[in-house]
């Protein structure tokens, strides 16, 4: 469904010798009804990949080679106007950051209405607003009909992030690319959103590419996992195999770090219990 073939991204090198690459020869593929977790350390190029998929790279950073095929169409070579019709409609992005992703001057309900009506001009305003409120409810926002009238600065960080998720889900996309979609959200709500994603994958055959630093999310919700390091995919494996044994040193390092965290958490809870 989404297939990335030999994608290279970079910027013109100051040494005049071509390009400094930031993503090199990245190939990935995610089928409908499947989910892929993309993990890697900060600055490895995960987010850059998401930007490339959404056509959001900013010059001087440009795609240098390769293809990003969505249902056979290359998103990279497509005219921006055609890409716009796909984005937010068939393929949705969830970008990280929460409140900074929302227009500060507009009520959040209205912002979701825009996502709906820019893709479906025939939809009546009242209907769109009704749907926006449903969406807010779906991502676990209490009092959604009141919150729809709130400005972003009146929402908590977690609620703002959930609104961003609601926007992405608005037009029932068939593929979701989510970059740290649940960072900054309470653990319980985080679970609710991820289970919502899982439900979409199971029942509606939606595809998911999820960028995360949390291997726990990968273990619970993904079919495959790809590890990015310094702009390259260093490992791409079935989740089951991956958690049994990691091939690449970077993967092992990531695993070790997570395990250490877990151990620490276990120690802490033990310590707390013994008091």
């Amino acid at each position: 469904m989404l297939e990335i073939k030999n994608l290279t991204v970079g910027l013109p090198s100051r040494a005049e010798s071509g390009f400094d690459t930031m993503l090199e020869d990245v190939s990935l593929s995610v089928e409908a009804g499947q989910s892929l977790g993309l993990v890697g350390e900060a600055g490895s190029g995960k987010s850059l990949l998401v930007h490339a998929i959404g056509g959001l790279l900013r010059p001087p950073v440009v795609p240098i080679g390769g293809e990003i095929l969505f249902e056979g169409q290359d998103l990279l070579s497509m005219p921006p106007d055609d890409r716009r019709l796909i984005l937010g409609e068939e393929l949705s992005l969830v970008l990280p950051g929460g409140r900074i992703r929302l227009n500060p001057l507009e009520k959040v309900g209205r912002q979701i209405v825009r996502v709906l009506r820019d893709h479906h001009p025939e939809m009546a305003k009242a209907e769109a607003l009704e749907r926006a409120i449903q969406l807010l409810d779906r991502v676990g926002i209490p009092d959604p009909d009141k919150r729809a009238l709130a400005y972003p600065h009146e929402l908590s960080g977690g609620m703002a992030q959930r609104t961003v998720v609601a926007m992405a889900l608005a037009n029932s996309p068939r593929f979701i690319v989510a970059d740290e979609p649940t960072t900054g959200i309470d653990v319980t709500i985080q679970r609710q959103i991820l289970e919502d994603f899982a439900g979409l994958i199971r029942e509606d055959n939606v595809g998911l590419l999820i960028v995360t630093r949390d291997l726990g999310i990968v273990a619970h919700f993904c079919d495959r996992v790809a590890v990015v390091s310094e702009g390259r995919i260093v490992e791409n494996a079935e989740v089951r195999t991956f958690f049994k044994e990691q091939q690449h040193p970077v993967s092992q390092e990531l695993m070790r770090a997570t395990v250490l965290e877990r151990q620490k958490a276990a120690e802490w809870s033990a310590a707390a219990a013994s008091r």
Binding site: G54, L87, E89, S92, L95, L102, N103, D118
Partner: peptide, 17 residues
């Protein structure tokens, strides 16, 4: 170059919007 305009582009909003 703000994050919300980037998000709006990622949502496929119309250029006019």
């Amino acid at each position: 170059s703000s994050a919300y305009v980037e998000n709006a582009r990622g949502m496929g909003l119309k250029t006019g919007t």
